[in-house]
Amino acid sequence: MFRLSNNLIGVLNFITFLLSVPILGGGIWLATRGGGTDCEKFLQTPMIVLGAFLMAVSLAGLVGACCRNSLLLWIYLFVMFILILLLFFFTIFAFVVTNKGAGQVVSGSGYKEYRLGDYSHWLQKRVEKTKNWAKIRTCLSDAKVCRSLQEASLSLDQFIKDNLSPIQSGCCKPPSECRFDYENATVWNKPAAGFASNNTDCETWNNDQSTLCYDCSSCKAGVIANIKDKWKKIAILNIIFLVFLVIVYSIGCCAFRNNRRDNAWKGGYP
Score class of each variant (00 low, 15 high):
D181K: 06
E183M: 14
E183P: 13
N184G: 05
N184V: 07
A185P: 02
T186L: 03
V187A: 13
V187W: 06
N189A: 07
N189M: 10
K190M: 08
K190P: 02
P191R: 12
P191H: 11
P191T: 01
A193T: 11
A193F: 12
A193V: 13
G194P: 05
G194H: 01
F195W: 11
A196Y: 02
A196P: 00
A196M: 03
S197W: 01
N198F: 03
N198I: 05
N199K: 06
T200L: 06
T200F: 10
D201E: 06
D201Q: 08
D201N: 12
D201F: 04
C202N: 09
C202T: 10
E203A: 03
E203V: 14
W205P: 11
W205T: 13
W205A: 12
W205C: 14
W205K: 13
N206T: 14
D208Y: 04
Q209D: 13
S210N: 08
S210Q: 06
T211P: 07
T211S: 10
L212M: 10
L212A: 07
L212F: 09
C213V: 12
C213A: 13
C213I: 13
C216M: 09
C219Q: 08
C219L: 15
C219M: 14
C219V: 15
K220T: 12
K220D: 08
A221Q: 02
G222N: 04
G222E: 00
V223R: 00
V223W: 00
V223I: 04
I224W: 00
A225F: 03
N226T: 02
I227E: 09
I227R: 02
I227P: 00
K228Y: 01
K228D: 00
K228G: 00
D229K: 01
D229Y: 01
D229C: 02
K230L: 07
K232C: 10
K232A: 06
K232D: 04
K233F: 14
I234T: 07
A235M: 05
A235H: 05
L237I: 03
N238S: 12
I239A: 10
I239E: 03
F241K: 13
F241Q: 09
L242M: 09
L242C: 07
L242Q: 09
L242Y: 11
F244C: 08
V246P: 15
V246A: 10
I247G: 12
I247Y: 06
V248P: 06
V248F: 07
V248W: 07
Y249E: 13
Y249M: 15
S250K: 11
I251A: 15
I251V: 15
I251D: 07
I251K: 14
G252H: 08
G252M: 15
G252V: 14
C253I: 15
C253M: 15
C254I: 14
A255P: 04
A255K: 00
A255W: 01
F256R: 04
F256H: 04
F256T: 01
N258D: 08
N258C: 13
N259Y: 15
R260M: 09
R260Y: 08
R261D: 04
R261H: 11
D262Q: 07
A264E: 14
A264S: 12
A264I: 01
W265A: 00
G267V: 05
G267R: 03
G268V: 12
G268M: 01
G268L: 04
Y269C: 04
Y269R: 12
P270H: 08
P270W: 14
P270S: 14
